[in-house]
């Protein structure tokens, strides 16, 4: 029997990832607070983090669950408004922001359940159109209702203003880390395998005794939760919420990130979420051409790599280390490498 070459023992594998991620956070944070990275760029970096959360969470529903929801911006909007209202009501306290993010996520998850139960009875195009409709409903409702039962809450088309700008680099990327970790651990468990089995073959999944309705809803709700958290971060980053920012185009933008990165690859989502957010900003000097370049990148990638940049490949730092150690142990060229079937373990964080 081929031994699975998990050379680095289990607790250490997590430790390596956590330590490296913490080091990354520390270095970047020092650079930002020290002023080496300007305020403008730190804002861009935060919005990269938000995009990564959105892409990774949508990847859960498209790449892993195999559905095509087009209302991701709707969940983001719900989370953003919930968080913003809480932040405005209880500004100042240190724990307000994390609580507001959590509340944003939970309300979005609640909407995820409400939409998911009817929507997931449908498949393919029908599900896409239903979720698209949901996203539009959220936007139109926010656009037209300015007072709820006499309270001036969302302020309709004028937008919600003067939200405390509490989103920092550190909070954003801690949320990125948590999102990647939670989705990674879910996917490497019996629950995650059940979600994958639905993507692969629903009839076979049912014949294996997997409650497909439950796991579809679970995948959808987890996806909605993190979209809500990203919405909260977005509210704290921009400081102003305008309903039209959460339209159809926003949903498409997130979907493009997932497809470009490779459906079913968390590393791909992280990568393309970062690149596609940074690209328009970096190309600001070529103002006239930046959207052309952006579109060209999409066209070129889809022609030459239709499965997305990463396909379903997931980067694993520990897997890489395992390979290296084995190469060093096994001498040059001979043996070793043949029997290596590296378990793809680590999270794709950086």
């Amino acid at each position: 029997m081929i031994k699975k070459s998990t050379i680095i023992p289990m607790p250490l594998r997590y430790l390596i990832n956590i330590v490296l991620f913490a080091a990354f956070l520390f270095v970047m944070n020092t650079l930002i607070t020290g002023g080496t990275i300007s305020k403008y760029y730190s804002g861009v970096i935060s919005s990269i983090g938000i995009s990564i959360i959105l892409a990774v969470s949508l990847n859960m529903a498209t790449g892993y669950l195999g559905q095509l929801p087009l209302g991701h911006a709707g969940f983001m909007a719900v989370g953003a408004y919930t968080s913003a209202l809480i932040m405005k009501a209880a500004a100042g306290s240190l724990i307000t922001f994390p609580l507001a993010l959590l509340a944003g996520g939970l309300v979005a998850a609640l909407f995820g359940i409400l939409i998911g139960i009817p929507a997931l009875k449908l498949k393919g195009d029908y599900l896409a159109i239903l979720t698209l409709g949901f996203g539009q409903i959220i936007m139109v409702v926010l656009l037209n209702i300015d007072d709820v039962l006499g309270f001036k809450l969302t302020r309709g088309a004028a937008g919600l203003q003067k939200i405390p700008k509490t989103t920092t680099f550190l909070i954003t990327f801690i949320c990125v880390g948590i999102t990647c970790f939670v989705i990674h651990t879910i996917m490497k468990s019996r629950h995650g395998r059940a979600i994958l089995s639905i993507r692969e073959n629903e009839i076979a999944a049912e014949s294996c005794g997997i409650n497909t309705t439950y796991y579809k809803t679970l995948g959808f709700v987890v996806s909605a939760f993190f979209a809500g958290v990203a919405g909260g971060l977005y509210a704290g980053n921009i400081g102003i919420l305008n309903p039209s920012a959460f339209g159809f185009m926003k949903s498409i933008e997130i979907l493009v990130m997932v497809v470009l990165g490779g459906m079913g690859s968390m590393f791909g989502s992280v990568l393309s979420g970062g690149v596609l957010t940074a690209l328009p900003e970096l190309l600001r000097d070529f103002d006239k051409y930046r959207m052309v370049v952006y579109s060209l990148v999409l066209v070129v990638v889809m022609i030459f790599k239709p499965t997305g940049l990463m396909g379903t490949y997931d980067f694993s730092l520990n897997g890489l280390l395992d390979k290296l150690i084995l190469r060093l142990k096994g001498g040059k060229g001979d043996g070793g490498g043949k029997a290596v079937l590296v378990e793809k373990e680590g999270k794709a964080n950086e």
Binding site: R190, R193, A194, L196, S197, E200, N201, I203, A204, A205, S207, C208, G209, I210, G264, T312
Partner: peptide, 18 residues
């Protein structure tokens, strides 16, 4: 009707889900 994109091990583990 196998779960074709998953590993052989994962296929059996899905059978062992419950």
């Amino acid at each position: 009707r196998l779960f074709k994109a998953l590993s052989v091990m994962d296929n059996v583990l899905i059978g062992l889900h419950n």
